[in-house]
Amino acid sequence: MTGYILRRLLAMPFLILGIITLTFALTSVTRGDPLAGIISDRQMTNPEVVAAAKARWGLDKSLPERYVTYLGNLMSGDMGTSFITRRPVAQDVMARLPATLELVTAAMIFGAGAGITLGVVAAVWRNTIVDHLARLLALIGASIPVFWMGLALLYLFSVQWGVLPGPGRLDPRATTPPQVTGFMTLDTLIAGDLRLFGNALYHLLLPAGVLGWSVAGTISRLVRANMIEILHREFITTARAKGAGELRVVLRHALRNTLVPTLTVIGYSFAYLLTGAVLTETIFSWPGMGSYAVSAARGLDYPAIIGVTIVGGVIFLITNLVTDIAYVIANPRVRPG
């Protein structure tokens, strides 16, 4: 296991280098002028201002020169300066990363909980109306696009019925607590403001539900298929013959064996949500990495685009590694090859 982990860690820098190289290559074929987000339209007609802006941001150099310079700066922890915010990209990303992590963690808790519950219910009451209803709910979550579901639920629950708040992490007039962890729910608890904690949790419900429901369908179908297979195995029959109650058989014997392969899907789903929360954050005005990536892409903010890509790639690689390790620990019969 130690050798396997070391090999994976040694391979990560090369994978990240490949991500950086691919991102730089894509920026060379992107149509549009990044200077449009740096200087005004009137100044774009002034050759001296344009030349000075290109020299200031290194846009007067060729792509290979910018690539080598960026790698050199990155080795010292410098991701460059954002064209739009005029702040270091690393500072912008670290300021927004906790918001994304909070949203994705809540979404994964909801998605895993709902998916496992639906899968177990569908397997236990197989081919009944309960099974059909659970499979329908899972199919809806897996097939409906996140942006459509987000807009529809935001309109219904916030605009029409008024039972859930609108976009944002807090109400517009709420006072933001001192930032300690970056997680709004945790920071409000640390500040000892239970009312503000409830407000933060209230704002988290809808976006986390929309994002989590997109993976609940996949988890539900996997759990259902595995549960149906396991419930027909001999050790389940033996447990029932010894007098074990049906609830104990399902939860203690069948579900525990089902969760081992489900760990992989949950881990990869978490990595997917981290890098794929762009639409949800945009719809709900969630100030995370996704909305930052959208604004960077709109303004052709190359340093910000590359910085978000690097951080997302690192998180994805680490999450996959942790998932593989957790799977081996949960199933000792599996050994890394």
Rank of each mutant, 00 (worst) to 15 (best):
L247R: 14
P261D: 01
N257A: 03
I219T: 03
I305F: 09
V260W: 13
A271H: 05
Y268I: 15
P207C: 11
A304D: 04
L259Q: 00
Y272C: 08
G290V: 06
T282Q: 04
R240G: 03
R256P: 03
M289P: 01
T262F: 05
V294A: 07
A296K: 01
G288Y: 00
I283V: 12
R224P: 04
G243P: 07
A296Q: 04
I283K: 03
W213H: 09
P261C: 09
Y272I: 11
E229Y: 06
G243S: 12
P287Q: 10
V249Y: 05
S295W: 09
L300N: 02
R298E: 11
L259C: 03
K242I: 10
S291E: 08
Y268W: 15
E246K: 05
S295T: 13
S295V: 11
L205D: 09
G243A: 09
I283Y: 01
G276W: 02
V210D: 00
T282F: 01
L255P: 02
G245A: 07
A241E: 13
Y268E: 12
D301Y: 00
T264H: 12
K242N: 12
K242P: 10
S220F: 03
R224F: 11
L204W: 08
M227S: 00
T237Q: 08
S295H: 11
W213Y: 13
V260E: 05
G276L: 14
G212I: 02
Y268H: 14
V265M: 15
G212Y: 03
S220A: 15
T258S: 13
M227Q: 00
P287S: 10
N226W: 02
L206A: 11
E281V: 05
A254I: 04
L255F: 15
G217N: 00
R298S: 11
G288N: 04
L204R: 06
F235E: 06
L205A: 15
V223H: 04
D301T: 02
E234W: 07
T275F: 04
H232I: 07
E246F: 10
A254P: 00
S269H: 14
F270T: 08
L205P: 14
L274G: 04
I306F: 10
L222N: 07
G299W: 08
L206P: 06
T238V: 13
I236A: 02
T282V: 06
R233T: 08
S269K: 13
I283P: 00
A208M: 09
A277G: 07
R256S: 10
R252Q: 15
V260A: 09
P303M: 13
V250K: 00
T238R: 11
P261H: 11
P207G: 08
L251Y: 15
A254M: 02
